[in-house]
Design a protein around this nucleic acid. Structure first.
Lengths: 187, 187
DNA sequence: AACACAATATGATCAAGAACATATTTTTTG
DNA sequence: CAAAAAATATGTTCTTGATCATATTGTGTT
């Protein structure tokens, strides 16, 4: 029974960590398996002992990014923050930089559309979870709360995606500011 | 003086047409120069007589997509449509399919972030034009009209980008519907 | 009709990267 | 301290694609 039983699991998570960060920052095509493994402190040969393909890695990395982002924006699991704090953290210049938090919904939006269904499934699932989490902050009894949550999700994700695409820092700042207000508007 | 003088210009536009469509639908990396030239009815050798690099082609194709989209959504140049008609056309299932119209701001959002500055410059310029056009439909005297235009732009572009990423057709439909309303809300 | 020259096509080079096959190393048990 | 088996590393193959160098084709002029 060589190797401690948890070791492989830990290595797998280390690879996923690297993949989640690199994919979110650079997109699927600019990141090679080499890059991911080197970032995780391994060489490319070890990859296929953990994942069957780059596509599978991508799909799992999307979930990892999402979980990591949630952990950063929900510091206290038991006491979820107010919606306003969440929105302000999400639509911040720090998030735009992507050093601490990197929501895959915003960082990989159009990267997804042309990938395999496996990847789009994962993105869709994460998106539904995002909308659902927002809805918890509204009045879930309210019949319009799902629409309100969708609206807020679009402003958050869309605002961040556009803010990252444009290279006018000042405009990006105003854009995020406008979105922070708009995300909280009740219609 | 061989070849008619307009011929090269026409060929260049034919290449740009193909590039604009293929890039918007499939993203930068999935489209080769071969693909573009073949789509235009040429072979790869002719490419470098028209463009100096794939990056330059990409930047120009973004502008071409934007102009084509505007032409489709503004059928009558002299009589611009009402904002509502514009929003409804933009946030439609047809636009999501991308067969007739393909706004590069929504189709290529996250494709842009990691490219050369030349490409990001172009995207930023097109985005500013988009916001400006929206602002014309509001009361430009109103001090808040730029913020209103930014908000509407985010809902339109972000809504379309997300609707394209998710592979749940029903959810995409609801999402677009919610965005059509939200884009027109005055705050 | 032949020529000049631009536009286009063909051929070749070079680099990257995914996937896999095989060799090595590392850890735990007997 | 071996031995076994899993984990990791190294070597290789194969494909793809951007770019460029060279050949060919088509057009308008003389």
């Amino acid at each position: 029974m060589p190797w401690s039983p948890e070791h492989k699991q830990q290595t797998r998570e280390r690879i996923l960590d690297s993949a989640a960060r690199l994919f979110a920052l650079n997109g699927y095509d600019k990141v090679g398996i080499n890059d991911v493994m080197a970032d995780a402190g391994l060489t490319r040969g070890a990859f296929y002992a953990h994942f069957s393909s780059k596509t599978q890695l991508y799909a799992e990395a999307i979930v990892t990014s999402a979980l990591q982002g949630r952990a950063m924006l929900h510091p206290d699991e038991n006491q979820p923050p107010q919606l306003e704090a969440l929105v302000n953290g999400y639509l911040s210049l720090e998030h735009r930089q992507g050093e601490q938090v990197r929501c895959p919904l915003a960082f990989l939006t159009t990267d997804i559309a042309q990938r395999e269904e496996q990847v789009r499934d994962t993105y869709t699932r994460v998106f539904k979870g995002f909308v659902n989490a927002l809805q918890q902050h509204l009045n879930p009894e309210d019949a319009a709360s799902e629409q309100q949550a969708l609206r807020t999700a679009v402003v958050m994700i869309g605002g961040m995606a556009i803010a990252r695409a444009i290279n006018d820092e000042e405009l990006a700042g105003s854009l995020l500011e406008v979105c922070r207000e708009a995300a909280l508007v009740k219609v």
